[in-house]
Design a protein around this nucleic acid. Structure first.
Lengths: 254, 254
DNA sequence: ATCCTGTCATATGTCGGAGTAATTAACGGA
DNA sequence: TCCGTTAATTACTCCGACATATGACAGGAT
């Protein structure tokens, strides 16, 4: 059940028609509603099978038009979070219907207090996929790939992981590896998970000291890929994922 | 570019307001539009960066309301296929922004003539993930899991894979393994891919003779999981995926 | 007890208009 | 000639009211 009814209201001093709604991160109005609802669902505020407020009622509560609400529902439906049928209302689907790997769903899951078990699941998946990706990259990389990785590594050394530029370099490094696998499915999957997880990590880590110098471990991965050694690459990447898991676990107090 | 303008028109003899549109598989109107557009995009009819017809023009072409079109666009946006901005129009995003692992996107990709490279990518991913899943299942399965697998196996023996019941049993078997991993992320990922790939395979296979008796290979997986032997389970599952790849490849004429 | 049938609440589809934002191009200054 | 600024166009965004269809539920008939 919806507890409160806040924060998505039109500016009351200027009701000149269009929405001055308090919107999420740069989103459109329906995007903001989808964001709000998505976070509510992902954070477990709705039990599966629970039915959301009706279209009219809900739109009235939030003081937005039905169109905006409906478009938001379309987004959630597209991500497998809800299903709406005439008369039956819009119901939250069981968890196994959710597109948990959708980048936005992932972001919602991590926005609040992420479920510790889900985080473990995700890292388990990363621990499976990323070493395999490194293995493939070692077999398929070309000069361009290596150059990009090298540049990213250099950037990581210049800036630390404490800066945004440093984290961007880290992302570039991992993306270069994924690109070198020549496998789009792998790329999309890992990019989604990595983005969500890393984002959380960096967020939670603000006050903490960085755990340890990550450069040597990255260099090991690079060396193995450059040498074309699939086994070593997979192993080195496994270490990297384990480290990330440790960081995240301690950051979340697990 | 849009080539034609067919098949989504209102019934002309009865223009009494509501949509009598020719709709896709049981979907709603906007779902049908999303389906149509999604398939067009996935089949490469639009180049990335290409801009779709404007809201008004498009809705007029298809003789549907702008609202329906907009809701369809929301669905596509949610799946990362397009992005629409004022004045700029609705543009097809580059391929790496697509949620290729979304079940619906996967279905669209496989609806037409699926890109052979993409199919290979997907099987590569399966070859990475499924053996690992079997490994985890061997470590974590309990009696219930084993019972469900056993039942599914029995059903597979009764019906063959040529019947729908047999394929359902096959799905049950694999789902039971995924469930036994106790990892939701793994489950969702593999379910999406498996559904799309298997569906295509069965579709293409209609006229073909089944390649070989798959039961013994499935039994090997079961035995390893029942015995709690992670290594053997992973290996046996690897064989299963390889076999599926062979089938699919030959079915697609690759 | 089961099945049918009518009612009604609710989602779905439609429409046109007002508002807003971003691209494009025209314009003026350096 | 080139570049920054401004204006107009254009397409998305949001709105609210209306019409339609469908599924749930209740009450009655078999």
């Amino acid at each position: 059940m919806v507890k409160e009814n806040p924060s998505l209201h039109r500016d009351e001093t200027d009701n000149s028609g269009a929405a001055k709604a308090v919107r999420g991160p740069g989103r459109r109005l329906h995007g903001a509603i989808a964001h709000k609802l998505g976070m509510a669902i992902l954070s477990g505020q709705y039990a599966p099978g629970d039915t959301l407020s009706g279209e009219v009622a809900f739109a009235e509560e939030l003081e937005v038009s039905r169109s905006a609400y409906r478009e938001a529902i379309q987004v959630l439906t597209a991500k497998g979070l809800v299903e709406s049928r005439p008369k039956a209302g819009t119901r939250v689907l069981p968890r196994n219907r959710w597109n948990l790997l959708d980048p936005e769903v992932l972001a919602w899951a991590f926005a609040g207090e992420p479920d510790i078990q889900f985080v473990r699941d995700l890292f388990e998946l990363r621990a499976i996929v990323e070493p395999a990706a490194a293995r493939l990259a070692a077999q398929r990389r070309d000069k361009d790939d290596l150059r990009i990785m090298k540049d990213a590594l250099a950037a990581m050394r210049r800036h630390t992981l404490a800066t945004e530029a440093g984290r961007a370099a880290d992302r570039d490094f991992h993306n270069a590896i994924l690109n070198a696998t020549r496998n789009d499915a792998l790329l999309v999957l890992t990019a989604s998970i990595g983005a969500a997880v890393n984002w959380t990590t960096q967020y939670k880590q603000r006050a903490r000291a960085l755990p340890r110098n990550p450069i040597p471990d990255h260099v090991r991965v690079y060396d193995a890929i450059a040498a074309g050694d699939p086994v070593a690459a997979a192993e080195a990447m496994g270490v990297l994922v384990d480290l990330a898991l440790e960081d995240t676990a301690s950051a979340m107090g697990g």
